[in-house]
């Protein structure tokens, strides 16, 4: 499974982009998006998903239920 960004809430502040250990985050049409193929939920890297930890807007980086949980 992966995280996704709720684009209607994203402020495009770019804070999450450099924090992702998998370079899964990029800017697209003014807001930021997560590439589900690259996101590992930060497992094996950090205790908490970095995009969630740094994002200034609550509930903007959330679990994307369209994908199964990531397992290392």
């Amino acid at each position: 499974m992966a995280f996704k960004i709720v684009s209607s809430q994203c402020t495009s502040c770019s804070a999450c982009e450099p924090e992702c250990p998998n370079m899964a985050i990029s800017e697209k049409n003014g807001t930021f998006v997560i590439d589900p193929a690259k996101c590992t939920e930060c497992i094996n890297y950090f205790d908490e998903p970095q995009c969630v930890a740094v994002c200034p807007v609550d509930d903007t980086c959330i679990i994307d239920n369209n994908y199964p949980r990531y397992s290392a």
Binding site: T11, S12, C13, A15, V54, P56, V57
Partner: peptide, 25 residues
């Protein structure tokens, strides 16, 4: 544009009058 703390007088969607910075809009 990015920040690393949250202040109760700031909503980053808009210009912040307290820290004299424009909002991300």
């Amino acid at each position: 544009p990015a920040c690393n703390i949250q202040c109760n007088y700031c909503n980053r969607k808009y210009d912040c009058a307290n820290e004299s910075r424009p909002g991300v809009v």
